[in-house]
C-alpha cells in the first residue's frame, strides 16, 4: 500500500511537471506578430521583433542550454565566463566555511548559555537585538573592516547561520530532562563527561534541527551576498546573466540553486535522523 501510494504520487508529480512544461512551451512559442522592417533595423532589434519570438526562453531552449552547462561544468574563460560547476563550487565553499565557523562558535556558546542561567540572562539582550538584523545589513560594515569582498561574504554567512544554531543549542541543552542529569550526578560524572555523554546526545536532535534551519538560511543569503560582492559564485552568475539579458541562464541558475539547497537540506536531515532517538 505504501509503495502504491508512492507510485501514484510519482505519477501525479510527472503529470504536473508535464503540464507545467507544456504550458510554458505554448506560452513562449509566439507572442507578437512579425513586423516588416528594414534589414538594418532588424539586425538591431533581434529575434523578438523580427521573428515574433518571445523574450522568455521556452523549455526547449533552457533544456538545450542546461545540457551545454552539464557537459562543460568547469570551463573558465576569464572572470565573466566560468562554468556553472565552478560558480556553484565557490558558493558552496563560502557557505561551507561561514557555516563551519558558525558551528564552532554557536554550539559551544549555546552549551554555555544552556547550562548557565547567568550567562543565559546576561547574553539575552545582545542576542535579542542582533538576531533580527538582516545579514545583508552587516555587509557594508564587513566590507569596511575586513576589506575583502570574498571574506565579507563568508562573514555574512556566519552571522546569518549562527543564530538558529545558537538558540536551538541553548534550548536543547537547557531542556535536557532533569532525571538524566540526576542520573549523571548520582554516578559522580564530571562536568566534561556529563556534557559529552548526557547533554550532547540528549540535545543533539534539537541542535541538528537548528543546524538544518541555518544551512537553509545560509544558502538563501549567499545568493544575495554574492550579487552584492560580485566576482564569483552562483549569486554573481545570476546577476551577471541578468546584465547579459540571458534569461535562459538565469532560469538555469535558479533551478540549480533550488537543487543544491535541497541537497544541503537532505544532508542535514540525514544527520538529524542519525542522532534522533525514540523515547
Amino acid at each position: 500500500m505504501a509503495a502504491s501510494l508512492r507510485l501514484r504520487a510519482a505519477i501525479v508529480s510527472i503529470v504536473l511537471f508535464a503540464v507545467f512544461i507544456g504550458i510554458w512551451h505554448i506560452a513562449t512559442r509566439q507572442t507578437t506578430a512579425v513586423v516588416a522592417m528594414s534589414p538594418e533595423y532588424a539586425k538591431l532589434m533581434g529575434v523578438t521583433a523580427t521573428q515574433g519570438k518571445s523574450a522568455m526562453p521556452g523549455p526547449l531552449d533552457v533544456g538545450a542550454k542546461l545540457w551545454e552547462h552539464i557537459k562543460r561544468p568547469f570551463y573558465d574563460n576569464g572572470p565573466n565566463d566560468k562554468g556553472l560547476g565552478i560558480q556553484l563550487g565557490y558558493s558552496i565553499a563560502r557557505v561551507g566555511l561561514g557555516y563551519l565557523i558558525a558551528v564552532l562558535v554557536a554550539i559551544p556558546l549555546g552549551f554555555m548559555i544552556g547550562m548557565s542561567p547567568l550567562i543565559s540572562k546576561a547574553l539575552d539582550p545582545f542576542i535579542q537585538v542582533l538576531k533580527p538584523i538582516s545579514p545583508l545589513a552587516w555587509m557594508p560594515l564587513a566590507l569596511y573592516t575586513i576589506k575583502d569582498s570574498s571574506i565579507s561574504a563568508i562573514f555574512v554567512i556566519f552571522i546569518c547561520s549562527v543564530w538558529p544554531m545558537l538558540l536551538n543549542t541553548a534550548f536543547g541543552v537547557a531542556s535536557v530532562r532533569k532525571d538524566w542529569i540526576n542520573v549523571a550526578r548520582t554516578l559522580e560524572v564530571g562536568t566534561i563527561r556529563r556534557a559529552f555523554t548526557v547533554i550532547l546526545p540528549a540535545a543533539a536532535p534539537t541542535i541538528l534541527t537548528g543546524m538544518r534551519i541555518s544551512i537553509g538560511i545560509a544558502w538563501l543569503v549567499i545568493v544575495a551576498a554574492e550579487m552584492l560582492v560580485g566576482g564569483t559564485g552562483i549569486g554573481y552568475f545570476v546577476w551577471n546573466e541578468w546584465n547579459n539579458l540571458s534569461i535562459t541562464n538565469v532560469i538555469i541558475a535558479i533551478l540549480l540553486i533550488g537543487v543544491v539547497g535541497m541537497l544541503l537540506d537532505q544532508i542535514l536531515a540525514r544527520f538529524t535522523r542519525m542522532v534522533t532517538f525514540p523515547e
Partner: peptide, 27 residues
C-alpha cells in the same frame, strides 16, 4: 553531594534512550 555509594532508582526509570540496555548499565 551525590555519591556512587548511594544509588537512586528513579520513578520514571530515567534511562538514556540513545543507549542500549547494556550501554545504560555499562555507563
Amino acid at each position: 553531594g551525590t555519591s556512587l555509594d548511594r544509588a537512586v532508582i528513579f520513578q520514571g526509570h530515567a534511562l538514556f534512550p540513545w543507549r542500549t540496555v547494556l550501554g545504560n548499565v555499562a555507563y
